[in-house]
Write a protein that binds this DNA or RNA. Structure first.
Lengths: 207, 207, 207, 207
DNA sequence: CATGAATGAGAGTTCATTCAT
DNA sequence: TATGAATGAACTCTCATTCAT
């Protein structure tokens, strides 16, 4: 919450309906601009033009270019996590959960390359946002692995659960490139095969 | 070769000893500046100041800021590959090769964070360089996996060797963060443990 | 119209009164700077300083140094043509028209050396503007000669009307130097004498 | 002579055969570069590269970029005058002389556009050279007109001989554009027709 | 006489940010 | 709340000129 309120300070909350609309237009336009051009090539001017508002209007809502970028990363981080959560909702079997998570993630990544363009560029623009996102994601995976371990689904003593979570997360992340490379091909599910196999062998308890 | 000579065109080869020294000073300074500040925060002026030469001297050797960045990425890509090659030289057993490669890589990454800061930022500054580097690395790993498969050391029918190589590479890459996080701690070998275990389970042939 | 609107794109039209004033200050200052120092010696910085605005303000209105130069040439080309048109308004006799045109032109040139400094340097800075101006002027003269020919005032069959127009225009243009040489001397009308004589003999119908 | 020696100071006279060759290569290259790109676009570096010598060698022979430009204009001015002189050598009849001069000039201009590109740009680069050239040319024409007048070939009392010379010269100069416009067309003689007619009517004595 | 590396002032241009309306 | 003109520091890049070898 400490950080939450800190970041919130940078975004002025609109009090009118008109204001809310303007804020949304700005965020949407920024997502497109940052996603397509990257942080440095995108300019406040290009964002406001795309949003259809005047240049100065930007500063009614954000203190700086960095601020809107941070807000965007936070938003996207949230939507990534929501997608993951929804993708595994209602599933009980730990290994099945991992499979579903992988599938949901790959589908999402394939459809939202811009989101990852932005989150990943944050490593160089606002490292704190970047770290925050991926640390949270890794923690959630670690929690699932720990739960699976307790449930006896995964190898006893996965040992360094965090290390396994980190590795697992990066297996996921690396596969995005395979998916992006074959853009247009609508079947990321296929790619998931090898990853599932690796996961299964890597973490599941031998019967 | 084509690209090699193409890129080389951007760097003027000095004809005197003095020139060679200046070029080296520039490259070294650029590595430090880009590594510490990132591409956009570093300026030609800061680089030349760090190198102890006049601003204009930069343009005696490089056509642009982009050009020296590309040259740098290429150099670093080379040193990464050389390190990997050296780290596995003389080893015969395929699984042992992977273990050695992992260890060499982790040690190198721990000691040369700047190099990866630069190579990874290339994703946003000069995507071609970035792709070129990681594709080459993935290809080498794929070749080793294929060789290991033929030698009977790895599971018969790893299937999509490229997918496995990609995953393996990303497991490696992800672990860099674990190592960087505990900076000062001189034992990346420990981190390698979990990774080795995963690799072993993931790819090695069950006895 | 095509070109007109094309060029216009380079100049941002101000939406406020303040903006209009700034734009005018910039154009005026640019006219003085280019006129006195020439295109290459004049700098954006010197122009904005003379205009009393900040350096960056320039780029609110023009895309580049070339752009304002082109705009200036176009403006001046226009004022030259307007002067010529006004100078012959209401005159009916073709030969008299030429005399009046010559006189108006010489007076104008004597009073606005800077304008010609700029238009003429355009030959080397923006050849298209240069050509456009002088071609238009030559065409107007050719039209007058053709009309005079039809009216029987000029020699039957001036033949290559364009060639005669070109020569006539250049007789005019050359005389500017005579006028500029005797700067301060307020009587360009005297110089017009010889030119009138030449014109008369050259083109008018022998009685 | 005063000026002659002044300019000479800027060009170092080579003492060896090798030096003479280098000087010539520089002048030739400069003529091409200035002629094609104009003074400001051409650089010492481009000139020395075209000449096949090292950058520093330039300053062995010329004090500055301006200096070689001036030397070039002087050389070209000379060749223009020589061409005119040769073109009328041996002709006695004054009107015939003018016709021959016109023809020689037009042929020369058609074949040496670069020369005029350079001489004319001198108006903005080194006005003194420019003035010097065209004043000399105008003087020569004026001398011929005066001689023709004394010989009774031209109208008694051409009056302001200088004005007539100036006009005549500019008729010539303007016609260059007509010739350059139809580049490739090898018959400038045709263009000379109208000019000859104008000259004849303008200056020749009515029989 | 020739070389080519080194210099640094200066140019054009960009853009995040401010502010009066 | 919205506007868009104004700002000016900062940046990349050029190039005439110098000089040690």
């Amino acid at each position: 919450m400490g950080r939450g309120s800190h970041l919130a300070d940078e975004t002025k909350t609109p009090r009118t309906e008109r204001g809310r609309k303007t804020l949304r237009k700005l965020l949407d336009a920024a997502a497109v601009e940052f996603g397509e051009k990257g942080f440095h090539e995108a300019s406040i001017s290009s964002i406001t033009q795309a949003a259809g508002v005047a240049l100065g209007t930007f500063y009614t809502y954000y203190d700086s270019k960095d601020a809107i970028f941070r807000a965007l990363v936070r938003d996207m981080s949230e939507s990534v996590k929501v997608t993951a959560r929804d993708g595994i909702a209602g599933i009980a079997d730990p290994l099945e959960i991992e499979r579903a998570a992988l599938q949901a993630f790959l589908r999402f990544a394939g459809e939202h390359k811009e989101i990852y363009r932005i989150i990943d560029e944050a490593e160089f623009v606002d490292p704190e946002s970047y770290r925050s996102h991926y640390e949270t994601v890794a923690e959630r995976i670690a929690e699932r692995l720990a739960a699976g371990g307790r449930a006896g689904a995964f190898r006893a003593g996965l040992g360094e659960t965090e290390a396994w979570a980190l590795m697992g997360m990066n297996v996921f992340l690396g596969l995005r490139y395979a998916i992006w490379a074959r853009e247009g091909d609508p079947a990321p599910d296929e790619v998931a095969g090898a990853a599932n196999a690796m996961l299964a062998r890597g973490i599941s308890r031998p019967r």
